[in-house]
């Protein structure tokens, strides 16, 4: 299938199942490993005992020049979906249609891929390489990365001595140096200091001014989604139950139908936040 320039990626009927019970999980995994070895296709279209759909028939087309937020409660399948899009997981059914040269850079848990015993500078080479950059790329970009991170002289201190916010700065700066077509940010910007976070949001906004670039932003932070998203996808128990460019409507739908907060007040507060939101905030 041809993918047009403005639709860099299409998620087509993706399903993925998992097993919650550890004993069955081991048993099924063992069986499936054997089956795959001898070339027997796995029966991916139905559930076995104790299995559940982590994702079920997900369809959407990512649009260039947009920030697409994915919201959903814990266990709704957000991270599974972003991992499939980022080529880390295989879907059981369906496919992610994209051009083979499309560069997707995922930012998951910020510490991942950073080595505490090594300095920030050394870590740029370690994590950068994990993103597929080679030595030359990194040597050319290292100053840019350090500048964006604003870590100053701390760049030569071991990452083990960094605060969470500093790790976030470093990780984010390395990730954007990969010059991706699609940036996938999974809960990664929920930590760290406000100033840097604001800088990241500004960066993402500028990033999608290029109509060929796109951002997938996974978060449960309602105010951040309100601030930056152009489109909201609501996931609930593995199903895509809302896909809208009316951010307020999407978030109200999410809060009313899926949200289970620690208290009623919290939910009411969030509902009010969304209702009273104006775009110049």
């Amino acid at each position: 299938m041809e993918i047009s320039k403005n639709i860099p990626l299409e998620v087509k009927d993706i399903s993925k199942k998992f097993c919650r019970d550890i004993k069955y999980n081991l048993l099924y995994s063992f069986k499936d490993v054997l089956k795959k070895q001898v070339g027997i296709s796995l029966e991916n279209n139905k559930l076995r005992h104790k299995e559940f759909w982590a994702l079920k028939n997900i369809n959407f087309k990512l649009k260039g020049g947009e920030i697409t937020a994915i919201v959903g409660m814990n266990g709704s399948g957000k991270t599974t979906l972003t991992r499939i899009i980022s080529d880390i997981f295989q879907a059981d059914q369906g496919e992610v249609v994209k051009n083979s040269d499309l560069k997707i850079t995922p930012i998951f848990a910020l510490g991942a891929g950073l080595r505490p015993l090594f300095t920030g500078r050394e870590n740029i080479f370690i994590k950068g390489a994990a993103f597929g950059l080679n030595k030359n790329d990194l040597e050319n970009k290292i100053e840019e990365i350090i500048t964006f991170s604003e870590l100053g002289e701390f760049i030569d201190s071991p990452v083990g001595s960094y605060s969470t916010g500093m790790k976030a700065r470093l990780s984010y700066s390395i990730a954007i140096a990969t010059e991706p077509d699609i940036l996938v940010i999974d809960e990664a910007l929920t930590v760290g200091d406000t100033i840097f976070r604001a800088k990241c949001f500004e960066h993402i906004n500028n990033f999608v001014e290029d109509k060929n670039k796109s951002v997938i932003y996974v978060s449960n932070h309602i105010d951040k989604v309100l601030r930056i998203a152009h489109r909201v996808l609501v996931l609930d128990k593995g199903e895509l139950i809302k896909d809208t460019r009316n951010i307020k409507e999407g978030l109200l739908f999410y809060l009313n139908n899926c949200f289970k907060g620690p208290s009623i007040e919290r939910k009411d507060n969030l509902l009010n936040l969304v209702k009273n939101w104006t775009n110049d905030e």
Partner: peptide
């Protein structure tokens, strides 16, 4: 092959980490 540099980096890090501690 495309990840040659990554393999090199990862190996180097494992070796150096052993001596750093």
């Amino acid at each position: 092959l495309a990840y040659e540099f990554f393999i090199y980096q990862l190996t180097k890090v494992s070796i150096l980490a052993r001596f750093k501690k």
